[in-house]
Structure formats: structure tokens, C-alpha cells
């Protein structure tokens, strides 16, 4: 009966703690995100069917941040991420490479890519049946159409460009395909999501599925959606790519991450993006 008695002790202690002013989990904050006083974002929705056993509601990381951080995302003049998107716009219009093209030569304005980010990563014409993230499509364009040097996945040029492209889809619902030719990638991403990596034996799910809403020291654990990437991070005062964040999380398990741009991380990106299907694209969002 030892185990039973101990278990009862824990329950009792938990009940006592509730009434005694001990730190309590902070709930996601009730608030509404309207950007530039006109673009209303969907930041909470009922969970998609394949998530129904996991969450009742899918909630943007915006609700887990402080008022000061949330406010920065309400207006593009207060959102430092938009400065980088504007630098991406300059690059969009700049001719580079031997073919004498800029992005604008073929795509005209970046608004022509409105909606693209809702289905990133995707299997498209250029990818020859592979699952590619936006960074791969951008570099494919640079190399084969512009005949220019590719950008590093995590370079500032690339993040500026992905911020510009993501921002063209702001307010549109994430709409990742999970079946058909996507199924095997989605399954791989899911497997990675639930694998406990590193000496600390932590899976994405341990923090962001089982413990979202709880505090790790002063950090409020969110559901870990990626609709706000590339994200302006206050901690580093710069844009952070999705894969950079994945790498940081696995590093923090005392583990060895997959490479930035690896098929494993693209698959994880697909799976994570699908968990937030229906949330508005927020990139570039502001987070701590």
C-alpha cells in the first residue's frame, strides 16, 4: 500500500497548495489581436479534428506573452519584425545574379504571394515531389532563375525575405495539408514531436502539449505553434527562423539537434504547422 499512501499524500498536498498562495499556472490571457486597427487575427479556435483528443482549443503563442509584448504586435510601427520585412522588400526589388532578375521580375509585388505562407512547407512544382520549406523555394529561384548565390537558411537576408513573404499572408488561416503525398512527412514530423531527445529526455510534447500554460521559472509555456514565424524575439533582438527555434529546443534537452534545413526539421515544420491549422498567419510575430 506504500505507493497508494504516497500518492494520496501528493494529492492532498496539491489540494492544500491551491489554497495557500503558491505559484499557480498562468492561463492564456484573454485578449483580441487586431493589427493596425484593421486586421483581426484568429488567435483561438476549436482544435482541428486530428487534434481533438489533445486540445479543446488551439491557442496562438501571442496569448501566452505579457501585455507589453502583445502590444508590440498590434501595430506595424511597434513591431520590430516589420522593419526586417521592409528590408526583405528592398531585396525583393534588387536585381542579383547572372540572369539579371529580381524577385519582382517574375512575381511583381510581394502581395502576389498572399496565401503562400498558409501552406508552407509544401510539395510544389519546383520541388520535384519533395517537401520543401519556403527557404528552399527561395534558394531554388535564386539559383536556377536568377543565377545568383543561395542564401544561408538562417542568414539575415533569408529571414528578411521570409518575413516579407509571411507578412503577405497575415490574417489568413494556416491551411496545411496532412494527407495524401504529405502523409509520410507528417508522420515523420509527428514521430519527432513525441520523441524524447537528449540527456534530459524531453519531447516537444512534454512541454508544449502536456504543460502549456505552466511556468518554467518566469517563462510561460505556450502550445508551441509556429504561425508567428519568422518571429521577432526580444531576447535576441532579431528575427528567428522556425528551424533555429527547433534547434534551440533540442539543444536545451542536452541533445544533438537535426540540421537546420534537414528533411527531419522540414517534416517537423509541416507537422507543427498543421497543429495550428486555422490560426491566422502572424509572421513576423513578436515573442520574448
Amino acid at each position: 500500500m506504500r505507493g497508494f499512501a504516497k500518492g494520496a499524500g501528493i494529492v492532498l498536498a496539491g489540494v492544500m497548495a491551491l489554497g495557500l498562495g503558491a505559484p499557480l499556472a498562468a492561463q492564456p490571457i484573454e485578449d483580441t489581436l487586431i493589427v493596425n486597427e484593421e486586421l483581426e487575427m484568429t488567435t483561438r479556435i476549436p482544435a482541428p479534428e486530428y487534434m481533438a483528443e489533445i486540445f479543446d482549443e488551439v491557442i496562438s503563442g501571442w496569448h501566452f506573452r505579457t501585455g507589453e509584448t502583445r502590444d508590440m504586435q498590434r501595430d506595424d510601427f511597434d513591431n520590430p519584425g516589420m522593419l526586417f520585412a521592409e528590408q526583405g522588400r528592398d531585396a525583393w526589388n534588387t536585381v542579383e545574379g547572372d540572369a539579371g532578375h529580381s524577385c519582382a521580375s517574375c512575381h511583381e509585388g510581394p502581395e502576389s504571394l498572399a496565401g503562400y505562407w498558409t501552406q508552407n512547407p509544401r510539395i510544389g512544382g519546383d520541388s520535384n515531389g519533395e517537401l520543401w520549406a519556403a527557404e528552399q523555394y527561395i534558394n531554388n529561384c535564386r539559383e536556377t532563375r536568377m543565377e545568383a548565390e543561395p542564401w544561408g537558411w538562417d542568414s539575415n537576408q533569408m529571414k528578411n525575405m521570409t518575413a516579407l513573404i509571411a507578412s503577405q499572408s497575415r490574417g489568413m488561416p494556416m491551411n496545411i495539408t496532412t494527407d495524401g503525398e504529405y502523409a509520410e512527412h507528417w508522420e515523420l514530423g509527428k514521430e519527432i514531436y513525441y520523441t524524447r531527445y537528449g540527456q534530459m529526455q524531453l519531447a516537444c510534447a512534454n512541454c508544449h502539449e502536456e504543460n502549456n500554460g505552466q511556468m518554467i521559472r518566469a517563462d510561460h509555456l505556450s502550445q508551441g505553434h509556429i504561425n508567428g514565424f519568422p518571429t521577432y524575439r526580444l531576447r535576441t533582438a532579431g528575427l528567428v527562423s522556425r528551424h533555429n527555434r527547433f534547434r534551440g529546443c533540442i539543444r536545451d534537452t542536452r541533445g544533438v539537434p537535426y540540421g537546420i534545413g534537414s528533411p527531419e526539421f522540414v517534416a517537423l515544420e509541416l507537422y507543427l504547422a498543421s497543429r495550428g491549422n486555422g490560426l491566422s498567419v502572424e509572421g513576423p510575430a513578436v515573442r520574448n
Binding site: I10, A13, A22, A25, C207, Q214, R217, A218
Partner: peptide, 8 residues
């Protein structure tokens, strides 16, 4: 700033 992931 004490965490809340584990029990008190």
C-alpha cells in the same frame, strides 16, 4: 519565479 510544471 518558481515553476509550476512539477508539484509544489
Amino acid at each position: 519565479w518558481h515553476g509550476t510544471v512539477g508539484p509544489s
